[in-house]
Computed example of a mutant assay.
Amino acid sequence: MATLWVCACQTTTEPLATGYDYQPLEKGNYWIYDVTEQQFSLNGSSTTKTYQLRETITGTVADPATGDPTGGILYRIERYRRLNDSQDWVPDSVSSFRIANSQLIKNENNRSFVKLVFPVVDRFEWNGNAFNSAGEDLYQVKNTGIPYRVLNQTFPETATIFQQNDSTLVSQDKRLEVYARQVGLIYKEKVQLQFCSSTPACVGKAQIDYGIRQYIRLRSYGK
Rank of each mutant, 00 (worst) to 15 (best):
G204Q: 06
G204M: 07
R81H: 08
L42T: 13
R123K: 14
A2L: 14
T168R: 13
S133M: 03
V183W: 01
E108K: 12
P147I: 09
L104N: 02
V61P: 00
N129E: 01
P147Y: 09
G59R: 01
G211A: 08
C202D: 02
T58M: 06
A62N: 14
S112F: 00
S93K: 13
V178G: 07
P69H: 02
L53E: 12
T58L: 03
F155V: 13
N101K: 10
L193P: 02
Y20K: 03
P15Q: 09
N84L: 06
D88I: 00
I57V: 13
A65S: 12
T11H: 05
N127C: 01
F113W: 12
I216Q: 12
Q163T: 04
F131C: 01
N165Y: 13
T58Y: 04
L185F: 07
Y210I: 04
C196V: 00
I212T: 13
N165R: 15
E78D: 15
R213P: 00
V150R: 08
T3D: 05
A2K: 14
G67W: 08
G222T: 02
V6D: 06
L53Y: 11
P156E: 04
R76H: 07
A134R: 12
N109V: 10
Q163N: 06
G204R: 03
C202R: 01
Q38M: 15
D63P: 04
F40I: 12
S167H: 13
N165F: 11
G128L: 03
L74A: 06
T56S: 07
Y215V: 15
Y75M: 07
D34G: 05
L16E: 13
T199Q: 08
F195H: 03
G71K: 03
T144K: 09
T66Q: 01
I73E: 02
I57M: 10
P24C: 10
I186N: 05
A201F: 03
G44R: 14
Y139Q: 07
W89E: 10
N143L: 13
R213A: 05
I77Q: 07
Q23N: 12
T154K: 08
I57H: 00
Q10S: 07
T3P: 00
F97T: 03
Q192W: 00
L151V: 06
E108M: 11
W89R: 12
L104M: 02
R175T: 11
G72W: 02
R175W: 05
Q38V: 13
T168Y: 10
V117A: 10
I212M: 11
L4F: 09
V117K: 08
I32P: 05
T50P: 01
